[in-house]
């Protein structure tokens, strides 16, 4: 058993771009669930739409030789346009989703959001849209990563910092690490600022007692819609960040992904500023350590290497159950503040 290797891998997982991307998605979900109490079970749909919005925009511009309507675009402009498209698509999806559903009770909302997210995935993997989304194989990383990697200020080779070795600017790189965590920090700052604003107080009021807030003359529907749209847009950014280290594939953003985000948000503590970040770090590190330990300590005949992944995910499911039953406030949360209410 390679203890030093496992320790290094676990250390790398703490700051890995995947951890940051899921932390960002969880911050988005924190706007929905933590602040407003919306049971959005389709968060992966927002992430997938963001990924498609960015990757398809960049792919089309790149295929056109870096030109849009005859104007040559710099790499930075391409990235900005891609991110803008991702945001617009996710905002539209949020408006479309919220319009019929935000008047519904909690579990109806959960069912509709999960159904909408699955519809996005079905459409994405449908053969009829193969020219746009690449069907179930998705969009290859080489089709949309070039602008992001070309603006990297880091060297174009492997760089070792302490015990960790990552590429300077390609795929899962130091450049991606820096960008991803900067975005997470900015989103956390936004959450911190907004949750302490009058606007955030209204959302918390809706979470605690919708009718009381309505009786104060607030437009509950409008506030819920704003929370849904903002959280969804942040989720879409999380999807874009995730796709930089991987590729755009619809099946990686299915229902399990949404459930992982829920688990890590509840683990860290919903309605807290650092909950999503801490939750994501604990979730991914623990998953890696459990897989490493089980692979190293349990003999191959008992638990083969292909069975490690389902084994670890059984534990994730059990963790989610235990968290909700015994510690719904997670590591950082305040139990008095966050009772999951009937809505």
């Amino acid at each position: 058993m390679d203890w030093a290797g496992l320790l290094t891998d676990a250390g790398r997982e703490i700051f890995a771009p995947t951890t940051a991307a899921f932390a960002l998605a969880a911050i988005g979900l924190n706007f929905h669930f933590g602040l407003t109490g919306l049971l959005n079970m389709g968060h992966a749909g927002f992430m997938l739409l963001g990924m498609y919005g960015y990757a398809i925009t960049i792919r089309e511009i790149e295929a056109n030789g870096g030109e849009l309507f005859g104007v040559h675009m710099a790499a930075g402009a391409e990235i900005l346009l891609g991110v803008l498209v991702a945001l617009v698509v996710s905002v539209l999806f949020g408006l479309l989703l919220g319009w019929p559903t935000l008047k519904l009770r909690g579990d109806y909302l959960a069912i509709v959001t999960i159904a909408a997210a699955e519809m996005v995935r079905f459409l994405g993997r449908s053969q009829s849209l193969v020219g746009l989304t690449g069907a179930s194989t998705g969009i290859r990383g080489s089709d949309f990563k070039r602008p992001f990697e070309s603006v990297s200020p880091f060297p174009d080779r492997l760089v070792t910092v302490g015990p960790f070795t990552l590429h300077g600017s390609q795929s899962t790189s130091w450049w991606l690490v820096v960008v991803a965590w900067t975005v997470v920090a900015l989103a956390s700052l936004l959450f911190w600022r907004l949750s302490r604003s009058p606007w955030g107080r209204v959302l918390k009021g809706i979470r605690e007692d919708e009718d009381a807030v309505r009786s104060l003359g607030k437009n509950v529907y409008g506030y819920k819609m704003q929370a849904l749209v903002i959280g969804g847009a942040i989720g879409a950014l999380g999807g874009v960040l995730w796709s930089f280290g991987n590729s755009v594939a619809p099946d990686s953003m299915g229902r399990p992904t949404t459930f992982w985000i829920w688990t890590l948000l509840l683990l860290g503590g919903a309605a807290t500023v650092f909950g999503p970040i801490l939750g994501s770090v604990i979730f991914w590190t623990a998953l890696l350590v459990v897989k490493g330990l089980a692979g190293g300590l349990i003999p191959e005949t008992w638990l083969s290497s292909t069975e490690l992944e389902p084994f670890a995910l059984v534990l994730v499911g059990a963790t989610l159950m235990a968290l909700v039953i015994f510690r719904p406030q997670g590591v950082l949360g305040d139990r008095r503040e966050l009772a999951i209410n009937e809505r």
Binding site: D107, W262, F311, L313, M321, I340, N341
Partner: peptide
């Protein structure tokens, strides 16, 4: 007296655990 919404999230956890158990 755990609310039905929490129970629903518990059932989501159970579903995640069971589906992976079946795959295993």
């Amino acid at each position: 007296r755990i609310g039905t919404t929490q129970q629903m999230i518990v059932s989501i956890g159970l579903s995640l655990a069971l589906v992976n158990l079946l795959q295993w």
